[in-house]
Design a binder for these strands. Structure first.
Length: 270
DNA sequence: CTACGTACCTGCCAGC
DNA sequence: TGCTGGCAGGTACGTA
């Protein structure tokens, strides 16, 4: 499901409801996720107050007085604010209930997501090898140019590699490359610094616009208030195989790169 | 480093 | 109508 904009939209949606709130009870109906939820996670969280919700890559980090919960939404996960009297539906695997009668519900049909607990986020194995945040000032053409040297992989795989830059998934990789006019198959090491500059701007633009629109809803992603994200209407290539390019009217092509479907315009991207 | 495959899951859709 | 295969927004890991 979610790429960076959807995770960020989720963070923005739930923060006002739960930052500063004390966790009264944690209900876990299903522990089998990407990693099994540890047996005493309820005990770790109950009674603690949520100090802040941060995001690193596509991970949401719930800092408490002592220790943090880390949530990843995988392909199909979402988080929603509920009243603690709302009965669970299928795949509503975890509830965090607060003192004020509200709760946070984790729903994830495919269970590729995760819910982990750590005393120290900065030393957690998930965060050790991550690349830069695309919306930070560290993400520049100079950085990409440095990392790109002699790399022969297609540029699309390169920008989807979380060791290089985090948060860019299959939708926004295709979209960013379209706006930058770069063919997704182009060998990374053969792209000029000038073109990297354009690519960096495109990525930041696409991600920021998608956050403003509340993310992209294709099937089962919904914002925390239950509404869909509206960025789908701004997609230029993703999911548009055979449809006319919004710029040149020629048909959008679809190929596979790194076992992932990839969309681009043969006429606009070189 | 690269390419490729495996694994973890459920749901949906097209085609027969 | 029902079955089957393929595909889906992610990512860690293993092998050559």
């Amino acid at each position: 499901m979610p790429e960076l904009p959807e995770v960020e939209t989720t963070r923005l949606g739930i923060s006002p409801w739960i930052v500063g709130k004390k966790i009264k009870k944690v209900i876990i109906r299903e522990r089998r996720f990407r990693w099994k939820i540890q047996d005493d996670l309820e005990k770790k969280l109950e009674g603690k107050k949520i100090q802040s919700i941060k995001r690193r890559a596509k991970y949401l980090i719930f800092d408490t007085d002592y220790g943090s919960a880390i949530i990843h939404l995988g392909m199909s996960g979402n988080l929603r604010i509920i009243k603690d009297t709302e009965s669970p539906n299928k795949h509503d695997h975890v509830d965090f209930l607060f003192n004020n009668g509200m709760g946070l519900r984790l729903h994830d049909p495919r269970r590729f997501g995760s819910l982990l607990w750590t005393k120290d986020v900065s030393s957690h194995f998930l965060f050790l090898k991550l690349g830069v945040e695309p919306l930070s000032k560290d993400f520049t053409e100079t950085y990409l140019n440095l990392k790109a040297k002699k790399r022969r992989i297609p540029i699309k795989q390169f920008i989807m590699n979380a060791h290089i830059v985090v948060g860019i998934g299959n939708i926004y990789a295709s979209e960013s490359l379209f706006h930058a006019g770069i063919n997704p198959k182009t060998q990374t090491g053969r792209i000029s610094k000038k073109r990297f500059s354009i690519l960096v701007k495109s990525i930041k633009n696409v991600l920021e616009s998608a956050i403003k629109a509340g993310g992209t809803t294709l099937r089962n992603y919904y914002k925390t208030d239950g509404d869909p994200g509206y960025f789908k209407q701004y997609l230029y290539v993703y999911g548009r195989k055979g449809k006319p390019c919004h710029i040149c009217k020629r048909k959008i092509s679809s190929i596979t790169i790194g076992q992932r479907s990839t969309f681009y315009c043969k006429n606009c991207q070189h």
